[in-house]
Structures are given as structure tokens and as C-alpha cells.
Design a protein around this nucleic acid. Structure first.
Length: 523
DNA sequence: AATTACGGCGCC
DNA sequence: AAAGGGCGCCGTAATT
């Protein structure tokens, strides 16, 4: 049973029938799959009112996946656009595109689809999905993507526990007391002064130009001011400069100003963007939730009487590669908890060598020992090797590639085609090859994680809450006495995701969940 | 004054 | 000769 939400209107949509008006409560009792143009618009008000729904079909996210599968990149993906295309009408720009934001004052009110039109678009999408070569997989992708949108809205509401008092103490300890606006914190200023003293003249450590010039004046030519390069130098400014860089980033990215903006009522509430990365990983539109530095983890503390269940999938990407490629040898190693240790004997007994070989295969690495290790991989794990090589070759040839469930890479840009035809053509081709090589693995890993999240969300006992999701890691906040059931739910969700994507693969996807009161204790 | 591009670095 | 994928966000510098 589908239930439609078009603006304020709610309708029930029986299989093959037409939408009939209904009340929200009445519709929800049928446990329907909710259909709406955009979860980001329709769901937050429900969540704010204390409601949750179990599943949905997000028209916009689905349209985006379908267009991409068709090799159509950059076309408007809103429900209104999908409806317009269906009827050969002029297609409106996406409302959230940067171009559409200009002149909003004079733009006409955004066209909204009514229930009948929304149903039309839904049926069109379902029909297009059935026409795909792997409709079952794509249906799973659409369901997982839509469930992700629900989870993202809920997490934005629930938020990750964030102790401002601990945060403030951490910042004060590292930087000195919070400064008045426009000033550097005391310890940061002291380091900047040390840098200046070391050069014998005023140097702003935030300025790349000034640093390059200052080091040049000291007889040290540098190509960049990256920490790794600065670290190699023999100069009294090096120590305070490196310390400055580290603390300055903490201050500006996750300092007091950031907390004022993003932490309220003891919760950090980031804005996730589902499908924000072409590979299907989530992005964030503010708050930098996916870049929280590890030193900040001690600030994330469960409420009294509650606990944090933290879990991440171990070595997800090589396992996904093993499962996708159907590589028997690699799948054997991926049947172990530590995949890299299991591979070590194949790579001269060194775990690190095995890890580097796998990463090089998935990222297209070629430096250092990579060529040698890749040659070993080609021999020992030919199916996995060929799988990523084929993806790279497709990218170099300007073709699109797809994830396991059918998420599709963007086609090359016209600019890329120009470059490939030009003098640096090989370079451009190889760059894209690395992208498509990585895409097939990263996108499928994202699918596994999304499926796991969707299953876990459905299995959490009340009042446990998902509070964080980062590529291959989840965090649940729950009362202490639910720690075991939640841990079990995580394990079960990982197993179910593996089954949903890969059926009876011998590859294991270990996902161990630990109960901690503080995030910093999770690893 | 406001916007855009770049270097750098945090996370996976 | 060497060449690793994906992001977001800051401050500075360049551009309008």
C-alpha cells in the first residue's frame, strides 16, 4: 500500500488504483510506503510532531538515480521536473540548484504536484525501474536511498550528544580561554609570535604566500606549505608552525563559534545530504559532521543512564570488491575477520603490503611498491584484479560505470573530452580511470552501508536513536539496558545487508558494535 | 564590498 | 619521473 503526501494533502493509493483522500493517522495505520516529492520537505514536520514512518519512496532521489542510470547527468530531478518531462512540458530547474536561488523574489511560486500528478510520476518511475536490466537490485537501491533520507531527517532532529562543557574545557586547554571576537586565542597567538620570532620578521602563519617567501628568505625553497613538507625542513619556525597549523584548524573548524552555531540543547545536529556524493555516500551541507577530528570524540558522551553503541564495518571496500568480483581467492580471505592478515602470505608475509596492494587496486595507486604488489595481485586474485581494471578501462574510454545495485557514474564532461583529445590526453584519461575504478567499489560499499543503516533503523527498539552515520560507521544512543539488544541489531543489520546485496556470498562483513559512554573509548 | 579560486587538511 | 579515490570547510588571495 502506498500513501501519497502532496503538499498538505494525504491520499491512499491502492495497488493499480487512484489516490483517495485520507487522514494522516488513517493512512499510517495501513503501514504504507509513503510517497512524496522530497523527504527533506515532507518528513521533518512529521518528525517534529513526534511521528516516524517505516518506509518511503522519495521521488526526487529516485529520479536522480534513474536519470543517472540513463546517462543523463545534471538534468532537473525534482518531482515537478519529472512530471514535466513525462508530458513534454517545459522542465523547471531544480529548486535547490544555485541558479534557481537568484531572483527568488520575482520567481513565481514553485509549482507543486497534486496527488494525481504525484501518482503519475510514481507509476512512471516504477515502470522505468522494471524496464532496467536488474530491476530487483535497483528497487533495493531506491528503497535504501529513501530509507536513508528518513534516517537523515531523524538524525538531524535527534542529534548526537555533545557536551559543551567538555568541548569548552578541551578548547581552553589547547588554545587558551575563548578570545573576544576577531582575536586569536592566547596559545595560538603565542605560536604565531614564535613563528615571527623565528623568521625575524612578521609572518602570518595562515598565509601560504608569506610562508613560502619567509622560508625562501631563509634559504629554503618549498613547493608547498603542507605539513609533510614543512616537517622535513631544518628551521626554528618549523615546530611552532606545525603546532599552529594543527590548533588553528581546530579553532576555526570546531571551535566556540562552530559550537554556537551547531550545538543546541546538548546535541550536535548536522545537515546530512543523502546521495550528496556521486558515489552515493552522504555529504553534509553544514557543521562538517563527516570531518569531526578524532580529538573531538571525547566530547561525545551519552546521557546519564544511556550509552552509545558505536560500530564500523571492518575493511568494507576490499570485502565489497571480493563479493562483487566473485573472486574465490579473495573471498576466502574476506571470510576472515582481518582480511589483510589473511592476505599477508600472498604478499610476502607482510600485512602492510597486503593492505597497500588492495588500496592500490581500488584507488589506482602506482607509487612505491604498488606496481610490484599489483602484479602479485593480478596473479593471485585475477578476478578481483580484472574487475577494477575493467572499471578503469571503461573510465579511460569515456564510458559510464555502475555500482552493484545500479548507481551510475556521471558521464565525462565535454571539457574532459577536449582534454583527452589534447596533448595531456593520457593524463586526463588515467585520472578518469582512477575515478571509475574507485567508483564501482566506493559506490557499492556505500550501498552496503545504506542497506545496513536502513535495516538497523527498522530493528532498533524504542527509545534507541540513530545519532550518527559516517560512510561505514553508525552510532546509536540508547538506554543502558538496551545495549545488548542494540548491539545484536547492529550485527543482524550487517548480516542482512550482506544477504540483500550479495545473497550467499562467502565474504563476511564483520561489524562489531561496542557500548561506550564516550565516543573516544570506541577505538 | 562581495564573490570566486586555491591551498591546505580533517574525515572515510 | 611520478602519477591514489571521494568529500566540506576554513582563511587568504585574486577577481569582479
Amino acid at each position: 500500500m502506498y500513501a501519497l503526501m502532496a503538499g498538505q494533502e494525504v491520499c491512499l493509493l491502492p495497488e493499480g488504483g487512484t489516490p483517495a483522500p485520507a487522514r494522516l493517522d488513517e493512512a499510517e495505520r495501513q503501514r504504507p510506503r509513503w510517497v512524496w516529492a522530497d523527504t527533506r520537505e515532507s518528513y521533518p514536520p512529521l518528525v517534529a510532531a513526534g511521528r516516524r514512518v517505516s518506509r518511503c519512496h522519495d521521488i526526487t532521489l529516485t529520479e536522480s538515480l534513474l536519470l543517472a542510470h540513463d546517462g543523463r547527468y545534471g538534468e532537473a530531478r525534482s518531482a515537478e521536473a519529472a512530471h514535466a518531462r513525462l508530458h513534454g512540458l517545459p522542465v523547471p530547474d531544480d529548486a535547490d540548484g544555485p541558479a534557481a536561488r537568484q531572483d527568488t523574489l520575482f520567481e513565481p511560486e514553485r509549482l507543486r504536484l497534486g496527488p494525481a500528478e504525484l501518482a503519475e510520476v510514481l507509476h512512471d518511475q516504477l515502470r522505468r525501474i522494471e524496464a532496467l536490466p536488474e530491476p530487483g537490485r535497483f528497487r533495493l537501491l531506491v528503497a535504501a536511498e529513501s530509507a536513508g533520507a528518513l534516517a537523515a531527517a531523524e538524525m538531524a532532529r535527534d542529534g548526537m550528544p555533545w557536551r559543551r562543557d567538555i568541548h569548552d574545557a578541551l578548547l581552553t586547554g589547547l588554545l587558551g580561554p575563548r578570545p573576544v571576537h576577531g582575536m586569536r586565542p592566547a596559545k595560538l597567538q603565542a605560536l604565531a609570535d614564535e613563528v615571527t620570532a623565528a623568521f625575524g620578521h612578521q609572518v602570518n602563519p595562515d598565509s601560504v604566500q608569506q610562508l613560502v617567501k619567509a622560508f625562501k628568505g631563509a634559504g629554503l625553497a618549498i613547493r608547498s606549505t603542507r605539513s609533510e613538507e614543512i616537517r622535513q625542513l631544518d628551521h626554528p619556525a618549523v615546530r611552532p608552525l606545525l603546532a599552529y597549523k594543527e590548533l588553528a584548524r581546530l579553532y576555526s573548524f570546531h571551535g566556540w563559534v562552530w559550537a554556537d552555531q551547531w550545538v543546541r540543547e546538548g546535541r550536535f545536529r548536522p545537515e546530512y545530504v543523502v546521495g550528496g556524493v556521486v558515489s552515493g555516500r552522504w555529504a553534509t551541507s553544514g557543521g562538517g559532521a563527516l570531518q569531526i577530528p578524532k580529538v573531538m570524540r571525547k566530547v561525545v558522551v551519552a546521557d546519564d543512564g544511556w550509552t552509545l553503541i558505536v560500530a564500523d564495518a571492518a575493511q568494507l571496500e576490499p570485502r565489497v570488491l571480493a563479493a562483487m568480483a566473485g573472486d574465490v581467492g579473495l573471498a576466502g580471505a574476506a571470510g576472515e575477520i582481518d582480511l589483510y592478515s589473511a592476505l599477508a602470505t600472498s604478499f610476502g608475509g607482510q600485512r602492510e603490503q597486503a593492505k597497500l596492494a588492495m588500496l592500490s587496486a581500488m584507488y589506482g595507486g602506482t607509487s612505491g611498491d604498488a606496481p610490484k604488489l599489483l602484479a602479485v595481485m593480478r596473479q593471485r586474485f585475477p578476478d578481483a584484479y580484472r574487475f577494477v581494471e575493467d572499471a578503469a578501462k571503461a573510465g579511460e574510454d569515456g564510458k559510464i560505470v555502475r555500482s552493484w545495485l545500479g548507481r551510475t557514474s556521471p558521464p565525462p564532461s565535454p571539457r574532459w573530452r577536449e582534454l583527452v583529445a589534447g596533448p595531456d590526453g593520457n593524463r586526463a584519461a588515467r585520472d578518469r580511470g582512477r575515478f571509475t575504478r574507485n567508483f564501482v567499489v566506493q559506490a557499492t560499499a556505500a550501498e552496503w552501508a545504506l542497506a545496513m543503516l536502513a535495516v538497523l533503523r527498522g530493528r532498533l527498539p524504542e527509545p534507541a536513536r540513530l545519532v550518527f552515520f559516517q560512510h561505514d560507521e553508525v552510532m546509536v544512543h540508547c538506554p543502558l539496558d538496551l545495549a545488548e539488544p542494540v548491539r545484536a541489531a547492529v550485527t543482524a543489520a550487517a548480516a542482512e545487508a550482506s544477504r540483500l546485496l550479495f545473497g550467499g556470498t562467502p565474504v563476511r562483513f564483520p561489524m562489531e558494535a561496542v557500548a561506550v559512554s564516550c565516543y573516544a573509548d570506541a577505538k
